[in-house]
Nucleic acid binder design. Structure first.
Length: 889
RNA sequence: GGGACGUUAGCUCAGUUGGUUAGAGCGCCGUGUUCACACCGCGGAGGUCGGAGGUUCGAAUCCUCUACGUCCCACCA
């Protein structure tokens, strides 16, 4: 009946677990064995698909990355142990402004498409002195090459961290959003949307970043509070002595004023509607109109409309058919303008031009300072009363729109851009969002809010260089003018394509930029245009239908909540537009890491800790423990204590593993009451944890497993059966006693085996280490990470379902005896001569089957049971304990 | 202005559909060592669950109001 023992010699095992050494060794083993490889031959039902966030490698590395990526890995590892063929790729989001900005700053260069390409150009970061000079200009192709080179270095830093951390990524699936395949895929996406009529190009005022000099989408806008001031400026009414005062925070836009507006019910201004106002300094007649959007409470209740101060200006400009007097250029400076012309009418052109000469060429800030001075000149008044500026500017704080990575407020600049129609699809977008399970569920509100509040279509063109080219050309008419109505979109077979280098179908290079020929689109995509395709990048949409069917929609999308409006939103939009599908079934929203002052950790605030440091100090398992302790969507304050707790758990596992696997006695079937009771509890634990994990509540599973491990396994069960497990060692191996001894050893091993597997998703290194000693050979699963997750069913036949209650009584009885020892200030190992164990009669009876184990485990020679009905069910008290004298040392 | 989430022990957090005396770890106090583990064991103290009202036999849990914090959206003259 007994099996041959496979044990370890504890002396041959390192006394302490060395995380750094184990991390390196196991990483190599896992990679060598292809442990985390996706198997494309498996069916969809057998597969679990993770739509991994591709980090921006040129961004900063901080503890938040470790936090959220570990949470995903824990889920992936659980699924793998459940027998799923896990698809877990990693990509790098290289496209976009962060990379460009980093390259520009690092090497002090700028991209200039007109600069010729230099073969083999290599640049070193310049000295401080060289940095004072204007940046060096490089060609677009050189710039892209430099960006790609730098991101490759950055990627390695992330990759090293992921590997150290033990993320079970299939590295054979690695991709970069700038690589050929992803560029081709993004362009294929464009082509599909183009063919379906979702795209259009238009020349219109667009939110514009004057530093990056590119259009920006609504999703990339961040509001910032900043100090400003109301400037009260007097306007005149044409053909009248009358004047009125408007309040503006942007006086520098006065020369771009195209109208004046007040609320239709505002009694103060009733007489003015329909008349013309005359601006001070520039003496431009502009219409006065009424609009519900004007707030009588704000400023003076009447305001100037400029091209363009804000979104409402754009709206009024459209609705009222106002003139376009665009002064702020793409570079953020005021353009030249001549007053007294059709474009810039003026009743007193000479004066207007004299004033404007003080402003032209200045940036917004400089122009504002300059015009405040001009407005103090009485000669500039349109009414002739006094200086146009009434009193001092009144300081206030207002919110201003910025590009989220920008340094100066956004301007509205009329430019030609590509848009994707989304406003007319809000309902469909909302429905798709509701079909997805959000974890936590309330995060759906964020998505709903954003979708309902969408005000402009998706602007997907960017006037940048490092990204995916928009795959179109425009025919040139006989005058060399672009025909924007009939763009030529690249054919799928050509992709990836660069319209600045390649030619459209049916044309040849000699026709480029020639009248009657074509010209290439120079813009690139919004970085989200590619990022929104991560599920399709993994599934090889469009190029491998079989694979796509197996991997799309994905099972889970892990991500942070601040990018619900971008990454999640656009991904849902793409899945809707391309295939009328959802992109994934579940979204797992991770929380933020807060510093001890409960502020969000970020590099810019200087409080982001370098994530490699805790790994080195505490080990990857301990750091993973910290991440896995936090529930989805919950922001967590960083507390170093929790690393220590993880470290302690890892140590305890290691020591318990050593002890259990060192037991020499042959195993027998698990039959003793205490052993069966223990296994019954273990079975319940495994079932509960599986339910938690299935709901992505890994933190609950960990908490339950950890509590069980300490309280039930190491503190109680292990202590109680220690003597019985050693009977064989003491030579007492015959018959019934051998069977009881073997039962203990078998249950100890089963407990360790199951608990190791339950901890494996969170602590992959220490569990693999212990697993490798005996279980790897014994179970036929060389790695614990491919061993099956313990199910209730797999343990069911081992223990009777009703035995577990005697285990609770054993726990309580041992605790009562321990308390007596603590009260007497003797060690836990001290032998008890005799004591009275009090409990109510029912409880004493329930304890009876495990009495011998409790006596032996608590080292009690003799106890007198005492029925005391004053005690509640399950409660024990140890009384009148007398202890054996400690032998002389 | 609209909305979401949070507020439980000194700290970090649990608390399932309302149900005995509200839990864990850390920290603190006390105590015990060498036979898995001092990278340790055992025991103890510590909370009127942000506040007020309501529903209920019974509320940390449900409802209303409110305070504070964080975030999202809107506003941007």
């Amino acid at each position: 009946m007994s099996r041959p023992p496979r044990t370890i010699d504890p002396d041959s095992i390192a006394k302490h677990f060395d995380p750094a050494e184990a991390q390196q060794r196991w990483h190599e083993t896992w990679e060598r064995d292809g442990l985390y490889r996706y198997d494309p031959s498996k069916s969809r039902e057998e597969t679990f698909v993770v739509d991994t966030p591709p980090p921006t490698a040129s961004g900063e590395l901080h503890v938040g990355h470790v936090f959220s990526y570990t949470q995903t890995d824990v889920v992936a590892r659980y699924q793998r142990m459940c027998g799923k063929n896990v698809f877990y790729p990693m990509g790098w989001d290289d496209n976009g402004l962060p990379t460009e900005r980093r390259v520009q700053n690092h090497l002090h260069i700028r991209c200039d498409p007109h600069t010729p390409y230099e073969e083999g150009l290599e640049l070193e970061p310049p000295s401080g002195k060289q940095r004072k000079k204007p940046p060096r200009l490089v060609s677009r192709q050189n710039f892209i090459e430099i960006c790609a080179g730098l991101t490759a270095v950055d990627e390695q830093v992330f990759k090293d961290l992921w590997q150290k951390l033990g993320l079970s990524i299939d590295w054979s699936l690695e991709y970069a959003t700038i690589d050929d395949r992803c560029r081709g895929l993004a362009q294929r996406s464009f082509r599909d949307l183009f063919d379906k009529g979702h795209l259009y190009t238009t020349y219109a005022p667009t939110m514009w970043d004057v530093d990056f000099q590119t259009a920006v989408a609504q999703a990339e806008v961040a509001d910032r509070e900043e100090p400003g001031a109301y400037h009260n400026v007097e306007f005149a009414v044409e053909d009248s002595e009358q004047g009125f005062v408007i309040a503006t925070t942007r006086p520098e836009l006065l020369p771009a004023c195209v109208g004046v507006c007040a609320h239709p019910d505002d009694e103060r201004y009733q007489g003015l509607f329909g008349k013309n106002a005359v601006t001070p300094l520039f003496f431009a007649p502009v219409p006065i109109f009424a609009s519900e959007l004007a707030d009588p409470e704000k400023g003076t209740g009447i305001l100037m409309v400029c091209t363009f101060g804000d979104a409402t200006d754009v709206l009024w400009w459209r609705e009222q058919g106002l003139a376009l007097r665009q002064l702020v250029g793409r570079n953020g400076r005021l353009a030249e303008a001549e007053f007294g012309t059709d474009d810039f009418p003026s009743l007193r052109p000479e004066d207007a031009n004299r004033y404007f000469a003080e402003l032209a060429g200045k940036n917004v800030k400089q122009a504002r300072r300059a015009i405040v001075e001009l407005l103090q000149d009485a000669a500039g008044s349109a009414t002739g009363h006094s200086a146009p500026l009434q009193g001092e500017p009144e300081p206030m704080v207002h919110t201003v729109r910025y590009y989220e990575n920008g340094d100066r407020p956004l301007e509205y600049v009329p430019t030609r851009q590509w848009f994707c129609r989304l406003l007319d699809k809000k309902d469909a977008l909302l429905r798709k969002g509701e079909q997805i399970q959000w974890h936590p569920a309330h995060m759906l509100n964020r998505y709903r809010d954003w979708t309902e509040g969408l005000a402009i279509d998706w602007c997907l063109s960017r006037q940048r260089y490092f990204g995916v080219p928009i795959p179109v050309w425009y025919p040139l008419d006989s005058n060399g003018e672009r025909d924007y109505e009939h763009p030529i979109c690249a054919e799928i077979e050509q992709m990836p394509v660069d319209p600045m280098i390649h030619t459209p179908p049916g044309h040849d290079e000699s026709q480029r930029d020639q009248a009657g020929g074509f010209t290439g689109e120079a813009d690139i995509f919004d970085t989200w245009f590619t990022s929104s395709l991560t599920p399709q990048i993994g599934s090889h949409w469009g190029t491998d239908d079989d694979r796509h069917a197996k991997l799309f929609p994905a099972d889970v999308r892990p991500q942070a909540h601040e990018i619900i409006r971008t990454w999640a939103f656009y991904t849902i939009a793409k899945a809707l537009l391309h295939e009328d599908s959802i992109p994934w079934h579940h979204v797992l929203i991770s929380g933020w890491i807060l510093d001890p002052n409960r502020k969000k950790m970020s590099k810019s605030k200087g409080n982001a800790l370098v994530p490699t440091e805790p790994i080195e100090r505490f080990g990857a398992d301990a750091v993973r423990y910290w991440a896995a302790s936090a529930r989805l969507g919950v922001d967590t304050a960083l507390d170093e204590q929790i690393y220590k707790i993880g470290k302690r758990l890892s140590t305890k596992l290691y020591n318990a593993g050593k002890f259990v696997l060192a037991q020499q006695a042959p195993q027998h079937p698990i039959r003793c009451e205490l052993d069966r009771a223990f296994v019954a509890k273990l079975r319940r634990l495994a079932a509960r944890a599986a339910v938690s994990f299935d709901e992505f509540n890994y933190a609950q599973a960990l908490q339950d497993t950890e509590a069980f491990f300490w309280t039930h396994f190491t503190d109680t069960y292990l202590e109680l059966v220690k003597p019985r497990a050693r009977w064989a060692v003491d030579g007492d191996t015959a018959g019934e006693r051998a069977a009881q001894c073997g039962s203990a050893v078998a249950a100890l091993r089963l407990g360790l085996d199951v608990l190791l597997r339950m901890f494996a998703p969170v602590m992959p290194y220490v569990t693999e280490e212990i697993w490798s000693w005996v279980f790897a050979g014994e179970t036929g699963h060389p790695s614990i990470h491919r061993a099956p997750w313990p199910t209730e069913g797999s343990l069911a036949e081992i223990a009777a379902p009703d035995s577990e209650f005697s285990f609770d009584h054993a726990v309580a009885a041992l605790a009562a005896i321990n308390k007596a020892k603590a009260d007497a200030e003797v060690s836990m190992g001290r032998e008890v001569e005799r004591l009275v164990l009090a409990a109510n009669a029912k409880t004493l009876e329930a304890l009876a089957p495990v009495r011998e184990d409790v006596l032996a485990g608590a080292r009690v020679h003799q106890w007198e049971p005492l029925a005391d009905e004053a005690l509640e069910d399950g409660a024990f008290e140890a009384r009148e304990a007398s202890f054996v004298e400690r032998p002389e040392r």
